[in-house]
Each structure stands twice: as C-alpha cells, then as structure tokens.
C-alpha cells in the first residue's frame, strides 16, 4: 500500500511528463505544417524537370547514358531513411524492419547500406552491417544542399560501378496519422519514370541534347532525394504528433486513476483515524 505522499509524488511526476509530451506534440504539429508546405512547393519544379527530360528522352537514343544503364545486380545499396530522434511511435522501427526484410531478399548479393538519420545508423552500426556512408543530424535543418550531396554521392557510386542497384527505404507520408514504410528503386533510372506532356516543338538546344539530358538527369535525382527527405520528415513529424498525443492521453488516464486512488487512500486514513479516536473515547468512557 503506497503512502499518500508517494502517490502525490507520482501524480506530480506524471503531470510534468504530460506537459512535455503535450509540448512535443505541438512542436511536431507546427513542424508538420512546414514540412507539408515544402512538399507542395517542390512539385512545380518536379513537374517541369520531368517534362524536359521526357521531351529529350524521346528524341534521343538513350542507351549510352550511364545513369540509365541497367546492369545485372550483384552489389545492392540500400538507402535507409530514418529520423535522428526517437519518441515517434513505430516510425523508425518500421523502417528497420523493412530494411532487414530487404536484406533478406537480396541474400545472394552483396548488400551495403547508406544511412540517413541517426536512428537507423545506430541500429545497423551496432549490429555490424556494412555502412558505406551516413548522413546524420540533417533533419533539424533540412536544406536542398543535403539532397544534392546525397545524390552526388549515389551517382558517383553508380557510375563508378561500385553498386548495380540502389533502393531507398523510407516512410511515405500519407497523412498526419498514417505513414508507410516503402521500398523504392532509385538507380538505374528508366525512361518510363518521367511524366509530363510531350511537346512537339523544335527547340534550339544549348549545348546539345545529349549534354542537356546528361545534366538534367542528376537534377531529377536531386529532386527525388529531396522529395524523399521531405516525405520522411513530414512522416516523422506526423508520427511524433500521433505518438505524443497518445502519450498525453495515457498520462491523463493514469493521473485520473491515481487521483482516485489518492482520494480513496486519504478517505481510508481519515476513517481509520476517526474510528481510532472514537474507539479510544469509548474505551476511556467505559473505564
């Protein structure tokens, strides 16, 4: 049986936890809004670049381009996109689970990892997986530059034939309460991936078409990376918001239970005291 003071202390400690979770929820909600805005802002750019690539790709013999070259996959690189911090429900563990599955399906090949986000990096480093590169603590201040750096690295790896297939595992942002861990092929690119209407215009090209296309493809990849980072960021904030909302609710529940328990214990103590006094008085009277 806990004493009154102990119960009071527990109630206070849970109340302060609740304050923290409530604050975290509100911060996550604000960040989520910002993250969603960035996703929307990136769309016109994506559409335009897809349109240009498609326009060029249909006019060209594309087999010579290194980023479009399909090789039989012997070495596979998995890009693992997790968050830098925990306290966001199953956000990180879903990714890790998915990656482990994916490693299993590529069992007969050589698999290496590129970790974006501290959580995934810590997990796979501790277990001795081969990690080629890592980008941690970028989600605090996400910038387009990060996407460019990551893309540049992946493109170099692919062109140098250090890897034959690049897949990204990340959380797709469905809405504030739903996010799915998905596996997406990143490299090599295929012509079908590009959307956009076809324009039948004869342009002047500067420099020539092939150089243009060669310059456009990395930009397209930059943008893919950027989109993935943004999606994952939005999903993380969404997951954290939901998790923290649940935590706040649970805290309320515990506080209610404890308060009830506290009052009952207090009542019992008072009753006990009264009956002791009454009993004592009775004893004195009869004596």
């Amino acid at each position: 049986m806990a004493t009154l003071r102990e119960i009071r202390r527990r109630i206070n400690s849970i109340k302060s936890t609740q304050q923290i979770t409530r604050a975290m929820k509100m911060v996550a909600a604000a960040k989520l809004r910002k993250a969603q805005e960035s996703i929307l802002a990136a769309r016109p750019y994506a559409r335009k670049i897809d349109e240009m690539i498609r326009h060029l790709i249909v006019q060209l013999e594309i087999s010579g381009l290194p980023l479009l070259a399909v090789r039989p996959p012997q070495r596979v690189t998995l890009v693992v996109v997790t968050g830098d911090r925990g306290l966001c429900g199953s956000f990180n563990s879903n990714i890790i689970k998915k990656v482990l599955q994916q490693i299993e399906t590529h069992r007969d090949k050589e698999v290496s990892l590129v970790c974006i986000g501290k959580k995934g990096y810590d997990f796979f480093r501790k277990r001795g997986y081969q990690i080629d590169n890592k980008y941690i603590q970028i989600f605090n201040q996400l910038e387009y530059l990060h996407a460019q750096q990551i893309t540049e690295y992946m493109v170099e790896q692919y062109i140098a034939e250090k890897t034959d297939l690049v897949e990204v595992v990340y959380n797709e942002f469905k809405n504030a309460v739903q996010q799915f861990a998905v596996v997406e092929k990143y490299l090599p690119l295929t012509a079908e991936e590009f959307e956009g209407e076809l324009k039948n215009v004869s342009y002047l090209y500067e420099p020539d078409k092939l150089s243009l296309l060669n310059a456009l493809l990395p930009k397209h990849l930059n943008l893919q990376t950027w989109r993935i980072l943004l999606e994952s960021n939005a999903a993380e904030q969404g997951a954290r918001m939901t998790a923290m909302e649940n935590a706040t609710e649970n805290a309320s529940e515990i506080i209610d239970d404890l308060t009830l328990h506290y009052n009952k214990t207090r009542q019992a103590a008072i009753t006990k005291e009264i009956s002791e006094i009454v009993g004592g008085a009775e004893a004195l009277k009869s004596a």
Partner: peptide, 8 residues
C-alpha cells in the same frame, strides 16, 4: 518573340 530554346 525569341525562338524556342532549351539551354543549360
């Protein structure tokens, strides 16, 4: 009235 152009 520039001609259609695509440039890097």
């Amino acid at each position: 009235d520039h001609a259609p152009l695509l440039s890097q």
